[in-house]
Design a protein around this nucleic acid. Structure first.
Length: 276
DNA sequence: ACCTCCCTGGCC
DNA sequence: GGCCAGGGAGGT
């Protein structure tokens, strides 16, 4: 479930450990994880011996600068997480990529479903990659309401799938999109272009507090514990969710049972009364 | 502007 | 055995 809050919580754990460290070894054990790299052998070739600069993030992408003007790209997909460990510590199953630092610390990418990926791009390669096409970051670069309204105008697409479109806004996933819509009292199926100015403003106002609430709890670890923080702890936001996963449970505002419907093949949870 | 598929594991 | 799952690309 890594969405923006989970990726940002991960980034904040990684930054102090990685920044300034030198990479001494890289092992890509599942070739599929390197599928976004034109020449997979470039991943270790470009990483080993290089010093790590800033660990950054855009939407759900971890973007880490390496000396030599390279960008180390990490995406966690549906089931990925990063684990920081010492050599010899027992490895969880599906440890698909291991990056060893000069300090001895191992950065492990664990991803059972392998929807995540790793890549190391030159500036030219980066410009043709997905992160280059992302919309503004939903937390760090959230557009003002008039700008959002302009970009939603005359669009027939329901507002929820638009919020999931990373070219529109980068960072929201299926959980936090539902949470944002619940907080702003907007029905997920509303055509994006049909929202009033006030509704767009309410939507905009809901985004930051929703994401920051998730971040404060260390993100949302679901029952399967696929997502964990790099130190192995679970994020504790699950029990604070207002809509996602609360099918049949009372709305925390009006007690009406939360409903689950499928919208564009994605589970969608909303209050049929508050979000009429 | 849609679907389908990529994977694996867990639950019913 | 079938269905479900945080995401995104690719094709129609």
């Amino acid at each position: 479930m890594p969405e923006l809050p989970e990726v940002e919580a991960t980034r904040r754990h990684l930054a102090p450990v990685l920044e300034g460290a030198t990479i001494v070894a890289v092992e890509v054990r599942r070739p599929r994880m390197a599928r976004r790299q034109p020449r997979p052998a470039d991943i270790p070739d470009r990483m080993v011996g290089r010093r790590i600069r800033r660990v950054g993030r855009h939407g759900k992408f971890l973007l880490t600068g390496l000396e030599g003007d390279l960008t180390w790209v990490l995406h966690l997909g549906m089931s990925g997480r990063v684990s920081l460990a010492r050599p010899g510590e027992p490895e969880p199953p599906h440890t698909n990529v291991v990056v060893v630092l000069g300090s001895g610390v191992e950065v492990r990418l664990v991803d059972p479903r392998t929807f995540g990926f790793v890549a190391v791009y030159t500036p030219e390669e980066f410009d043709h990659s997905t992160p280059a096409g992302l919309g503004p970051d939903a937390l760090d670069d959230l557009p003002r309401a008039p700008e959002l309204a302009r970009r939603m105008a005359a669009r027939a697409v329901p507002v929820k799938p638009l919020l999931l479109d990373q070219r529109f806004l980068a960072g929201l996933g299926n959980i936090y999109a539902d949470e944002v819509l619940w907080r702003s009292r907007i029905a997920p199926v509303r055509p994006a272009g049909s929202l009033s100015r006030e509704e767009v403003a309410a939507l905009r106002r809901a985004i930051r507090p929703t994401l920051e609430a998730g971040l404060r709890s260390g993100g949302t670890s679901l029952d399967d514990l696929a997502y964990l923080l790099p130190d192995g702890r679970a994020g504790e936001h699950l029990f604070r969710l207002r809509a996602y996963g609360r099918d049949g449970l009372p709305c925390r505002r009006c007690r009406t049972p939360i409903r689950r419907e499928v919208l564009r093949q994605r589970s969608t949870f909303f209050c049929p009364r508050c979000q009429a």
